[in-house]
Amino acid sequence: MECSLIEQILRDALALDEVHASSDGSHYKVIAVGECFDGMSRVKQQQTIYAPLMSYIASGELHALTIKTFTPTQWKREKIFNS
């Protein structure tokens, strides 16, 4: 599955400021940034990302998905911390 397609599906389904998808073969990683994650539990944040991708996961087209979610404020801190 193309990373650009994953990004587009998530952009279309959710109010995200940024979304980044990458893969190393069959393992995919998604970083999603949006105010929609503010106040959500980690589990709910993961479920929010999984929901629009479920048909691809069920078909086996997408598997081994790692998800990291951030609010815009958390993302700014993360970028500063990791620079």
Rank of each mutant, 00 (worst) to 15 (best):
F81W: 12
Q74T: 01
E61Q: 07
G39F: 09
H27I: 01
D38V: 07
G34H: 08
S26W: 06
S4P: 01
G25N: 01
S55K: 11
E18M: 07
G39Q: 04
Q47D: 02
M40W: 10
T71E: 15
V43D: 11
A51P: 00
Q46V: 04
A13H: 09
R42Y: 13
K68L: 14
S23P: 00
T48H: 06
T69L: 14
E2T: 03
W75K: 04
G34F: 08
Q74G: 10
R42D: 13
E7F: 11
W75H: 05
A32Q: 05
V30Q: 08
V43F: 15
I57Q: 07
K44D: 14
H63S: 14
D38W: 06
L62N: 04
A58G: 04
H20C: 07
L65Y: 04
Q8H: 12
I9N: 09
E35A: 15
L53H: 06
L53G: 03
H27W: 06
L14W: 04
S41V: 03
Q46E: 14
G60A: 06
Q8V: 09
Q46T: 07
S59M: 02
Q45C: 15
L62D: 07
A64N: 08
H27A: 11
A51V: 01
D24R: 08
S22H: 07
A58R: 06
I49C: 13
K79T: 10
R11D: 05
Y56M: 15
S4A: 11
S59Y: 09
E78C: 13
V19L: 12
L14F: 06
L53Q: 02
R77T: 15
S23N: 03
L65D: 00
I9A: 12
T73G: 12
I80V: 12
T48F: 12
A51N: 07
N82V: 01
E61N: 03
L53P: 01
K44W: 07
W75R: 02
E7N: 10
V43H: 14
V19M: 13
A58T: 03
Q74M: 12
E78S: 14
K29I: 05
M40C: 08
R77K: 15
W75C: 02
D17H: 10
C3E: 00
L65W: 09
T69I: 11
K29M: 11
V19Y: 10
G60R: 00
G39L: 05
A13E: 12
G34S: 09
